[in-house]
Amino acid sequence: MTRALIALLSGLLFGAGLAYSGMSDPARVQAFLDLFGQWDPTLAFVMGGAMLPMAVAWVIRSRLSSPLAAPTFDLPGTTKLDRPLAFGAILFGMGWGIAGLCPGPALADLAIAPGDVAPFVVAMFVGMAAQRFTAFTSQKPKQAGPK
């Protein structure tokens, strides 16, 4: 219960930050990516602002043996620079540029313009499910094959 409340608070602040910073506006995000149009640098200020608390948080984290409200840290440990990372980032960047939306703003916009953002959110979950499905089918032959 405590953990869900902390997660809710985190999500709430995250969504508030997205809406306050203008990042929930697809046109503004797309304008950041539009170097040859009416360029809007706001996204760079948002990233800069977000780095400060997180830079401090990573330093504090290095001095903690466990998080404050959970038994252990469960952080991404992969360091390999592999093809899925690169292809995934490229595909994500294409979609981000085409729609002006990434997952956070899309979900936050469900409260601001639900009808407008719904097609994106539905398509996003379809895309996520499709990735899981293709990951399964491409792994199966390897596991089953004689080696």
Partner: peptide, 8 residues
């Protein structure tokens, strides 16, 4: 865009 963002 949604499909690409979800998959990517």
């Amino acid at each position: 865009g949604g499909l690409l963002v979800g998959y990517g």
